[in-house]
Design a protein around this nucleic acid. Structure first.
Lengths: 245, 245, 245, 245
DNA sequence: GATGAATGAGGCTTCATTCAT
DNA sequence: CATGAATGAAGCCTCATTCAT
């Protein structure tokens, strides 16, 4: 805003602009033709650069891809966070997140597919697990809040629900895309069904079976949470040690 | 019949034997290095054939891959069918199927991943959707029986449950594999949780058999899981430390 | 005739029969697909032999081709000799030979072309010059007789006439084949023209026999030719118009 | 302009220079070893490029060959036109053309042979008939002029003479090359003989036999010429009609 | 003898990356 | 700094010929 319309910020800005164009064009091409289906020469022509220039932005085809993927995940992670309003009750937030996730997976299916494809790049792991974790943490935060609010029983194992949540949505997305026509009502159906299930199975306000969980149960749950933290700490420790070498 | 057990079945049998060996070796290599990562020359050397010979069995690298995938799906579809005994009540069958599926997905994760990768093979669709349908039909059959038996409400939309079923299991498999160590108790946890959810959400008799599983039993399972993970993390830590030397 | 109908002359005869079938099938395939376009495997299937068997008749693909070519040349050389009756005056014989040659070149053009192709087989000269000489000797014999008879001046250089003779006919064949439609009157035209030229240029008796052919006869021939060509052009035009639909 | 004569014309010129070298080297090798006998690797080494570089000039081995052939025909067609001086009487021009053609065919015999070989390239017609027509048109032009000048009888069918002309020369070239030694006197002999024949058979100024052609003869000839034009017009019409679709 | 599976040496072509201009 | 021609290492596949059965 401090910048008047005609003021050309040569240098840095121009460069970032080009990098952006490059990333965007590359992303489209990768989705369309697959990683191996894109030739650097074709990409260069598409963005109006020379092949050599691309290499001044990203030193490798694989690097370029990685940058795209990172951007993508940051983008949809932000979207996920934005899709829920922290004022709503956690359950509503979960519902919003589900809606966002399903819609996103369907919209960017090809790209996600490509992403998966590249988790197998033998030599160089283009897509890391970190990016995924950043995304799922949105769910985790809401979930923990739900527990705090008493909407969900504290002895529910989070990862079980998380896996059900994302697993069901992802598979449903594939299933929906497999059909001839994608009706939004199918999406609504999936989300309602999923949330209802979670509500019935783990919710507190219903007089469900889970509420009968005994004291012992709670004890083990706590133990588990301790184990979680311990494990996390240890893993971190191990990783740090490795990186030093 | 004129031929005793140990007799050499010249000609045809020998060839089938070789084809089998070829398929097997190729499968291993594809899983290990990915489709594009496998060079026909390397494969030839691995099975002890010449490059040219491979082409008398499969006229194309892509053909070979396709044969492998078809075999694989037939194999696990058969396994799925065999994993359930039709005498059991449908819910038990679903439980058995879940167990089989989760175990299978975990065991053959790399291969399945590869399979997904190839669904994007632009020009030639190496992996068809038919094979998948043949597999999921096992679930459908059981589900329908469950409805007939009155174990599941007749107004439940089958594909919703199917997507939840496979989606949860698949994602859980990824999640489990993502951890340093795979404990069988985690798998049990996932399956119990899934089935319980289905039971609660779609079952007709609320006081179902599964929920009757004794509290002690479940506590034990949880404890085992916690112990497993701690142990795993520690082992991993130790191993990592060693690598530094 | 020494051989009764049902008497199977096993061994030698059967073999020669097979060799004949092989040569014939190979010839057809070579003409159709060119030397390099024929795979020994395909040939084997076509004649109903195994690949290995072929090699017991001809130790090399190139050998096989050579045998075919030799047979071919012997065949048409015999045909050439048969096309002229030694009772006729030499000039008439030359005329018959020309007719035979032009017809033969047109009929077997593809094969002759193939033959030429192989004269360039760098390492192994599949088609030798001997075969050609055996063929052209038919011309030479007649020519010499013509000189002896006094029909042709003794101081004419034979090879000059021979080259004119075969050269004109071969090129004309190409030229005729290049047209949309092949009319026989074109062939007659070419032959008459050629012989008349030879007559005029090298003949001794100016008022030779050929020139004695009645005027009416020649006019008729010309008219036929004109009609043929007009008809051909029209047919072609009609056909082309149809293709537009 | 700022660039002196000897200055290096970087970029484009250098490339064209390389392309030229490539074409030339390839031509030599193709003539020497035949189309299939030339390996791209060997060619690359010969011109001092890398294999890959060749493909940035010609996207295919076949393309390369085609370019060579086109160049060749343009070259000799130009040569043919240059070999005759339009000031000379047509007959002299024909004589010069014959000399040029015979010398050219002998000089480039191997290449022409190769050219013929490739007219049979099953899938892709490497050598088109157009190129040949462009060449023979030189003859046609002179011939028509000769008719106009009254050197040749107007009722002579042009293609008959054309076929005799080129056919005789080509065959003679083969014949001369077949001999141990190529004497120029043989070439002179062939040309003199050919021209004399044409002179005697079709020339007007001699009191040859042709001049005796009766009135009827002339009538048919005229008819023929009419047919020629009609045919030409029709063919053209047909071609045009097709191109419209 | 007949068979046809096996061989294995290349052939053409592609393409990420570099580097002289 | 940008350019884009050059590189060159493989990759997949073909096919005449052999030889164990």
């Amino acid at each position: 805003m401090a910048q008047t319309s005609a003021a050309p910020l040569t240098r840095r800005q121009k460069i970032e602009q080009k990098e952006h164009a490059l990333l965007w064009a590359a992303r489209q091409m990768f989705v369309e033709h697959g990683y191996d289906g894109v030739r650097m020469a074709a990409l260069a022509k598409r963005v109006g650069m020379s092949e050599g220039s691309i290499y001044s932005y990203f030193s490798t085809k694989s690097d370029l891809m990685q940058a795209i993927v990172i951007d993508f995940w940051r983008e949809i992670a932000d979207g996920a966070r934005a899709s829920v309003s922290s004022d709503d009750p956690p359950f509503q937030q979960l519902c919003d997140l589900a809606e966002y996730h399903l819609a996103t997976v369907i919209k960017h299916f090809d790209f996600l597919d490509l992403t998966v494809t590249l988790r197998r790049g033998a030599d160089d792991n283009i897509v890391s697990r970190e990016q995924l974790r950043a995304y799922t943490s949105v769910f985790d935060d809401i979930f923990r809040k739900a527990v705090d609010c008493g909407e969900i029983s504290p002895d529910v194992v989070m990862w079980l629900v998380r896996d059900t949540f994302f697993g069901t949505l992802e598979y449903s997305a594939r299933s929906i895309l497999g059909r001839r026509t994608q009706s939004t009502s199918d999406m609504t159906l999936v989300i309602d069904n999923l949330l209802e299930q979670i509500q019935k199975s783990y919710g507190l306000n219903t007089n469900g079976a889970v509420s009968a969980s005994s004291l012992e149960e709670r004890i083990t749950t706590r133990l588990e949470s301790v184990a979680d933290r311990l494990e996390g700490a240890m893993t971190q420790l191990a990783r740090d040690s490795n990186l030093e070498s």
